[in-house]
Design a protein around this nucleic acid. Structure first.
Lengths: 304, 304
DNA sequence: CAGAATGATGAGAAAAACTCATCTATCGAG
DNA sequence: CTCGATAGATGAGTTTTTCTCATCATTCTG
């Protein structure tokens, strides 16, 4: 037995709160501002407290109203998305995809022309975002996640392992300090990614270097920045060999030692469980997975 | 500009789906089954698909209806909780608390009589649950979490570090295999917790034992089970010294080496951010934190 | 200070929701 | 197999809710 407030009043409240104006809410809902006023009053009487501050001509939310709005919005988002999923056309040809920024700029972007050539009718709507997203409340159809692959309640498809190799600017090799064997790294600056300090330790261990106290170290907040720093000649970074293949090919970056570190992390394509795929989603999924399989080397087409 | 379905129809649908009966839903909502039928039809017409299967005399949800119900429930839960929070009486003297099972049985339970003696008017409603909970959608007021303390969007209060010591049955010491120095562990079975295999490695390292290949190993799924296994004489486990203090005091468990391993994890009291605390919540929080501070030794009152 | 804009309020109109009567289908008892 | 009971569907009419309109108060603007 549920105890819900008057839901239509709730809808009106949400709109009024969003616009901070009863008149604007009225326009959105195709009713008069008077109707909005009545409904808000009904809700306030039900709750036994005021949601809006009406001391001035314009309305502002009370702290209680502010808190309530957050939750109500959340809930309405979910209803809206669930409804959209249900009524969504299976024949839809727009696919909304959320991808990790690094993967987007270094892998997907250079290959998008290929996808568009293969599926000219399908439109990709791409959104860069880090971390996990709540498929209950976003309109994203699919996402590319980076991590361990252990996520609950979503459909997960393995794409590609992430293997790290040391990279640096070719200028570093020309300098007086050589980089001929892994031990030589002791004389260089190691570029770390803040939250993954263990990567260098693991790599050195794998390279058979017992312990190393490098000449200096530099911390960057993301892999993308670490790679950029390496390219600027600031030191040696660990980077995904596939994502940096373009820079390596063009000679902007060099790989002093081809010793790959398995991070046990990977890129995965994920989407909501039990969700029936639209033709657009199917096309993107198949293309993405075949690009991954058919192209282990990380070959990238020339930039146009 | 939102696109929400008719919300009253949604409420009726949720009730009908929950009861798998229009007549029952009618009773809950104080309307006739006819009204329910009309509302469900309205919603189905809005969505353009059927939510119920009416081939038999009793209604069952279609797959689409099933999916929709999940989301709608989720959303209604959130609205219900938000409404409850808003209208909740500040003077409330019932506190709903969710705690880790281990902490509940070994720490909270033995001390609850104390709390009740101090605050006879306040009623604790305790719920044992592992993992994190979604404060947006539960009626729990507060929770005790175990972990790193790095959780977003909630108010976190440190309670106590978790330090591990080896424990075993006193029978193991009487046996022919001595436990005089850490190296002697090589002749015993080490009891691991499945997801925390590194703990023994770290402890051994801290104890100055380079590497050890124990006689055998036993894996248990939780700390509670590992401790129980140790008590049965099956081997040596790592356990929180405070949570097992009663067994240690009574001699059911012994600590062969008092070398504590800092797990960098701890117990924390958490609750919803910005939530105004009721007097009951304040009382529990203050009592819990003072029990923690004033009682570093882990002293437990005699069981009644 | 006048005029415009925003919201409140009460009464009546419009719309939505509900009930009732009636109908159909299924299930179970005899 | 038949008949009564039960669950839901449906359409017409009634009740309730929601909305509009007219009017008023307040405040911001020029």
């Amino acid at each position: 037995m549920r105890h819900l407030p008057p839901l239509n009043a709730l809808r009106v409240f949400e709109s009024a709160a969003r616009h901070r104006s009863f008149a604007e809410a009225g326009k959105e809902l195709f009713v008069t501002s008077s109707a909005v006023s009545h409904q808000v009053k009904t809700l306030e009487e039900y709750l036994g407290l005021s949601l809006f501050d009406r001391s001035r001509r314009t309305v502002t939310l009370t702290p209680a109203g502010e808190q309530y709005l957050t939750s109500v919005r959340h809930a309405f988002d979910e209803i809206e998305m669930a409804t959209q999923r249900l009524t969504a056309n299976q024949e839809s040809n727009v696919v909304k995809i959320s991808v990790a920024p690094n993967f987007l700029t270094r892998w997907l972007m250079p290959r998008m022309a290929r996808f568009q050539a293969l599926y000219p009718d399908i439109e990709l709507e791409i959104n860069a975002s880090m971390g996990l997203l709540d498929f209950d409340r976003t309109s994203s159809d699919m996402a590319v996640y980076f991590g361990s692959g252990e996520w609950d309640d979503i459909e997960v498809h393995f794409l590609r392992k992430v293997m790290l190799v040391p990279v640096c600017s070719p200028r570093l090799l020309d300098a007086e300090l050589p980089l001929e064997k892994p031990e030589d790294l002791a004389k260089h600056t190691l570029i770390y990614v803040s939250k993954r300090k263990w990567e260098w330790e693991n790599w050195l261990q794998q390279a058979g270097v017992d312990f190393i106290s490098a000449r200096g170290s530099l911390q960057m907040s993301s892999g993308q920045l670490a790679t950029a720093a390496a390219q600027e000649g600031l030191g040696v970074a660990l980077a995904d060999s596939t994502l940096t293949s373009r820079e390596i090919k063009s000679g902007k970056l060099v790989v002093p030692f081809d010793i790959q570190l398995d991070t046990h992390r990977a890129f995965y394509l994920v989407y909501r469980k039990q969700r029936p795929l639209t033709i657009g989603m199917k096309a993107f999924k198949e293309w993405l997975m075949s690009e991954m399989r058919g192209n282990e080397s990380g070959e990238i087409p020339e930039a146009s």
